[in-house]
Write a protein that binds this DNA or RNA. Structure first.
Length: 293
DNA sequence: CCGCGGGCCTGAGAGC
DNA sequence: TGCTCTCAGGCCCGCG
């Protein structure tokens, strides 16, 4: 599932094909993804240059020469492929590697540097949206976004503050993009596991006393940073080795310590617990009741 | 205002 | 083998 490390890996894969190039032709094979595409989406993009390709949380943001921003979201199953000459590189083959090629290719960018970029998304939870750059702050999905978990501003005090007064579980709080931007179900489970904190713990219990050191929140922030950075390194390594071309996910999925390991022994040295699966807010949570408190 | 749960959407995999 | 059913989860929105 595309969470921050996957979206960032996709961004890095797209940069050489997009930055500094302009759209020579754009194909929209259907009028909508999750939502209707902007009116005259294809025609409007043609001729514009991608000045830079950034990311905020799970959103890709292409800064265009028209003073607009192309917002792209991968949803659950969105992937890009980049073709340059004969070689085609999948960038972020997350979920449906064996799906019939072509059937869910909804948007194709032809770039002035010769690259062809294809956006494929079987479940169409992803979307693309155009917005004026000076209106970016008004964009509801971006405006209220929490801090970047790998940014300098994100620390234990900030996380504890964001969780203070919340009535919900720590799992739900970390999944809330307003608390911290970019975590999804998998990395929330993994981070809580590494920090030895129970997903069922009340979010407000993260804080100890305001204005005092926050050991639990600090440990959680460190765990979040660690797991995201490891996943990012794995994504990069996989891309460099071109191991994605066999359609195998690679990335980080083989390094999960708790996600999707129901019934298997806890990997924490000396713990001896068994990984359990519970459902929170309609989503699977994997955790070790023994060492996560 | 906040938290929860339903809906969106398709493919994979289990079970009969 | 083929059908049906459940599950996967990011995000929005409606309800209480």
């Amino acid at each position: 599932m595309p969470e921050l490390p996957e979206v960032e890996t996709v961004r890095r894969g797209l940069v050489p094909a997009m930055e500094g190039a302009h759209f020579t032709k754009v194909e929209a094979h259907r009028p909508d993804l999750r939502w209707p595409l902007p009116k005259n989406f294809a025609g409007h993009l043609q001729g514009q240059e991608v000045v830079s390709l950034g990311r905020r949380g799970k959103y890709l943001l292409a800064d265009l020469s028209s003073q607009e921003v192309l917002i792209m979201h991968l949803g659950m199953s969105g992937t890009f492929r980049v073709r340059h000459g004969c070689a085609e590189t999948p960038i972020g083959e997350f979920h449906h590697p064996r799906a019939k090629p072509g059937t869910h290719d909804h948007v194709v960018f032809h770039m002035s540097n010769g690259a062809t970029i294809t956006f494929s998304d079987p479940r169409r939870f992803g979307f693309m949206k155009l917005i004026a750059r000076d209106k970016l702050e008004d964009e509801p999905s971006l405006r209220a976004l929490g801090p970047e978990p790998l940014g300098n501003a994100f620390d234990g005090a900030m996380l504890a503050q964001a969780c203070a007064g919340k009535k919900t579980s720590l799992k739900a709080a970390l999944s809330d993009q307003h608390v911290v931007a970019g975590l999804g179900n998998i990395y929330v489970c993994e981070a809580l596991y590494r920090a030895h904190l129970s997903p069922k713990r009340g979010a407000s219990t993260l804080a100890t006393r305001t204005g005092h050191p926050q050991p639990r929140a600090d440990a959680l922030v460190q765990a979040i940073r660690d797991v995201l950075e490891e996943a990012l390194r794995a994504g990069g390594t996989t891309l460099r080795n071109h191991r994605l071309t066999d359609g195998e996910l690679g990335y980080f999925q083989h390094a999960f310590r708790v996600y999707d390991r129901e019934g298997q022994p806890c990997m924490t040295p000396g713990c001896g617990g068994t990984v359990r699966r519970i459902v929170q807010s309609g989503r699977s949570t994997f955790y070790c009741p023994q060492c996560q408190r």
